[in-house]
Structure formats: structure tokens, C-alpha cells
């Protein structure tokens, strides 16, 4: 079963953090179809969070078709994000990224420089997509 945690400093709202944690777990194969998500009260007790927030996160996951709530039984995972074709693409992409990292280091960039470069490029690319 998944164990939630909240990062107060991330700037990401608690409900989104829960959604992201479930999606990541699905993507990494930590949650599989048929698994039960913790009950709202369990999550409330675990991370001291408003139950409405948990409900909202679960509703969003349900809306996305990832989980189903069965009254009286709990919320169950009904889909997976660990897509075989996607996972297949992970290997080559990771290799490309490694190669790129080595190049950046060779060019004299420190870890922080690399991170800043990656983040700004990532953000501006995302924004161009939106615009």
C-alpha cells in the first residue's frame, strides 16, 4: 500500500501532491491494478490533512480513470501508468540524458548550473507549448 507524505515547502497544493504521489507510484509500478488506496481517515491520520483534500485527490484520480471507489470497500486501482511502450522508451532516453550530462560537465558546468539550465529550458519549452 502507498504511504503518503506532504512537503510543506514545495509550493504544490496538498491535494496535487497526493495525486502526483499516486501517479508516480503507478508509473513506477509501486501500485498495481487491484491495489487498495488507504482510506481517507488513514491518510488524515498519517499526514494531518483535511479529509476534503484527500477526497478531492481521490475524486480527481477517479475522474482520470485510474481508481474506482467501491462504497464500503474502499478505493481501488483500476489502471496503470506503467505503460510498456513508455517504459521501453525510458532506457534510450536515460542514456541520451547521461551523455548530455557528461557533455555539460566537460564544458565546466557545476551541478547547480546544470539544474538551472535544465529547469529554465524545461519551463520555457512548456510555456511555449501552452502559448
Amino acid at each position: 500500500m502507498i504511504e503518503f507524505h506532504l512537503d510543506d515547502r514545495s509550493g504544490v497544493s496538498p491535494y496535487l501532491q497526493l495525486v502526483q504521489q499516486v501517479r508516480r507510484a503507478l508509473r513506477l509500478g509501486l501500485l498495481r491494478e487491484g491495489d487498495r488506496l488507504p482510506t481517507v481517515r488513514d491518510v488524515v491520520a498519517q499526514v494531518t490533512i483535511n479529509p476534503n483534500t484527500v477526497l478531492k485527490a481521490y475524486r480527481e484520480l477517479e475522474h482520470a480513470g485510474l481508481v474506482t471507489a467501491r462504497p464500503g470497500a474502499g478505493t481501488f486501482v483500476t489502471a496503470t501508468l506503467a505503460d510498456a511502450t513508455l517504459t521501453a522508451a525510458y532506457g534510450p532516453l536515460r542514456q541520451d540524458l547521461r551523455r548530455w550530462l557528461a557533455k555539460a560537465r566537460l564544458a565546466g558546468l557545476a551541478d547547480e548550473d546544470i539544474e538551472a539550465l535544465f529547469m529554465t529550458t524545461f519551463q520555457s519549452a512548456t510555456q511555449e507549448d501552452i502559448a
Binding site: 506532504l6 510543506d8 496538498p14 481517507v40 481517515r41 488524515v44 491520520a45 499526514v47 494531518t48 490533512i49 483535511n50 479529509p51 476534503n52 483534500t53 478531492k56
Partner: peptide, 26 residues
């Protein structure tokens, strides 16, 4: 929060520190 989850009551709570409320308020 456990009581809110169980009994569905509405809650208003005050604080001069937002950090106290960040997780629990919607």
C-alpha cells in the same frame, strides 16, 4: 481532522500562524 472525516462537521479555526493551518484548511 479525524473528527471531520468521521462526522462531516464544518470547522472554523483561527490562528495567527498560517503554517498551523496550511495542511488542514480547504
Amino acid at each position: 481532522m479525524d473528527a471531520v472525516a468521521e462526522y462531516g462537521l464544518s470547522v472554523v479555526l483561527s490562528s495567527h500562524l498560517i503554517a498551523d493551518l496550511e495542511r488542514v484548511c480547504d
